[in-house]
Amino acid sequence: MKALQKINSRFVPLPIENVDTDQIIPARFLKATTRDGFGKNLFRDWRYENNDESKPKADFVLNQTQYSGEILVAGKNFGCGSSREHAAWSILDYGFFAVVSSFFADIFKNNALNNGVLPVTVSEGFLQKIFQQGNESTLSIDVAAQTITIDATGDTENFELNPYKKTCLLNGYDDIDFLLSKRETIAQFEKEKV
């Protein structure tokens, strides 16, 4: 996992609530056996007419060239539905390093953090303020300080981040290395467990 400390970038607005993982990456694209290349199918059925890459839907934000950046900003309950980690992989592969919303589904949040994609939970009011910004506007996210700022207005909000996960993110540490180092303790636990 790559370390993530600060992001300063324009953002892509997706003011839709309950964006489920079937929209993020439809099941028919889950047949790969590696983690790579999912970005091209991110939001596939919202992005293209009749599944045809030569027919981008003009009203979908990923097809609107005035919007770009490393941050996706979406309505509440982002990532609900299936546990497919492919959703986090497709977001990362597309080039987003953070998703901002007022509410995240649990499994998606874990999956994102396990891949170095930062889920930033903000208040509904702050989220609406971001949506009101123009397409040139930028956001600054500071992982260590746990803050997100709308650069043009100076509005800042703190976000929650588990201290353990924060350390992992800042240093690019990975839970699996941590758990491998615990094998002896776990074996001992197994012996004592009835």
Binding site: R84, N110, K182
Partner: peptide, 11 residues
């Protein structure tokens, strides 16, 4: 998620 599947495999 799949990273967690790997965690269970590992530990």
């Amino acid at each position: 998620g799949t990273s967690e599947v790997e965690m269970v495999f590992a530990s």
